[in-house]
Simulated assay, not measured.
Amino acid sequence: TLVCVHYLALGLEITSTGTTPIEVASGQTVKLDCQFNLAQADSGPLDIEWSLLAADNQNEDKVVILYSGDRVYENYYPPMKDRVHFSTPDPKNGDASINLSMLKSSDSGTYQCKVKKAPGISSRKMQLIVMVRPSKPRCTTEGQAEEGKNIVLRCSTPEGTKPIQYKWDKITDSKLLPASAVLDPVEGTINVRNVSTSASGTYRCVASNRVGTDECLLVLKVTPPQNTAGMIAGIIITLLLLLLIVAILVFCWLRVRRRKKYEKEICNEIREDVPPPKSRISTARSFTIGSQRSSLGSMSPSNLPEYTLKSQYDKIPSSEEYERPPSQAPLPPPSAMRMGGPSLNRMGAIPVMIPAQNRDGSIV
């Protein structure tokens, strides 16, 4: 039986050869070759089946495309719908090759072409690697680009099938990398120690793999060392000026507040040394003058000396004398004690006849 099976297997033969993995960039189209020859003894119906083998034996293989009963079935595998087709319209003529278009990284794997025409049967496996070309890399600088410092130029790409190689070069000035630069083509970095101003310029990083390349540019400007002491002094002076301005504002605010408080207290204070109204002075004067005149009108000769003493009240007091305490009132001048007849007449006094007396006191 084993010999018979071996004999039957020799009837149908797949002539396509090659075991090298097929590497194709994403987005492109690839042809998976599967040519076969039939034997005269192969008289059964022709069946062609393409499948994507599972990486794990526990999972099921996925049928990609099928030819059976002179009919093509293309939409067996939804992720490859409308992207897989037979290379020829009639595969029964000995060409079971297929074309995969718009390749994706998920299309990578091992494919098997199985051709069956009873009693003959044969199959062929091939590995497809869909590689993603590097996407636009990003060039950045790590560290302070100041003379005498250490900096790192970094280049990285978010997408791309590894391995990816990175290459740096300078495209301006001398077009030479700094003497102290250390390049890492796998990580895409350049370490520059004790950088100098001569390292300034435009750098280019090229990321590449087996299916494509892309690049980015970086402009590096190395500055002289900063005057740290001057910066600190400037900051201190600025802070002092700010504090001075704040102090002035607070002082002005307190002064205005104190002035308003003082004015408010003055308005509410009742002062004891305020002079009385002028209307009261005039009333007092009129009252005093009227009283004196009435007193003089009723004087008799017997109380004439008292009258002369009261003549001092005929004088209208000034505001200063009115406000002076009684204890400090001035004494009447001596001349006021003696007043002549004409003066008395002007003051409204009534003349009284006094009998003449001699020296001994008798009336003449």
Rank of each mutant, 00 (worst) to 15 (best):
L177I: 12
P78H: 03
S123Q: 15
Y76V: 06
D61W: 00
I164P: 00
I171F: 03
G143I: 02
F86P: 00
G109Q: 02
L176E: 13
E146S: 09
K175W: 12
K116Q: 13
Y76A: 01
I98D: 11
A181N: 08
E142M: 02
L103Y: 07
A181I: 14
Y77E: 05
E147I: 12
Q144Y: 00
K149G: 05
D95N: 15
K125F: 08
E159C: 02
P89T: 12
L66K: 07
E187S: 11
K136I: 14
K162C: 08
N150Y: 04
G188K: 06
R124Y: 12
S68R: 13
D169M: 11
D169Y: 10
V64I: 15
S108A: 12
T141K: 06
P178V: 01
G143H: 04
E187R: 11
V152D: 00
T172W: 11
G109A: 00
K170Y: 03
R83C: 04
K175N: 13
S97Y: 05
T172K: 04
D56Y: 08
P79C: 05
A118E: 14
T110S: 10
V182I: 14
P163V: 10
S108K: 00
P178Q: 13
P185F: 05
V64K: 01
E159G: 11
K175P: 00
G188I: 01
D169K: 10
P178E: 02
L103S: 06
M102L: 15
T88E: 15
A145F: 04
P119D: 06
L176N: 15
P79I: 04
R154A: 14
S180V: 08
V63I: 04
T88C: 11
L153G: 05
E60H: 05
C155R: 03
E146R: 11
I98N: 02
D169R: 10
V182L: 15
L183H: 14
A96V: 06
D61A: 12
L176S: 15
S105A: 09
T88L: 09
M102K: 12
K81M: 10
P89A: 08
L103W: 05
D90T: 12
L177Y: 12
L66V: 00
I98T: 05
Y77K: 06
L128F: 13
R71H: 09
V84W: 07
D61G: 03
I171T: 14
L128S: 07
I121K: 14
K167C: 07
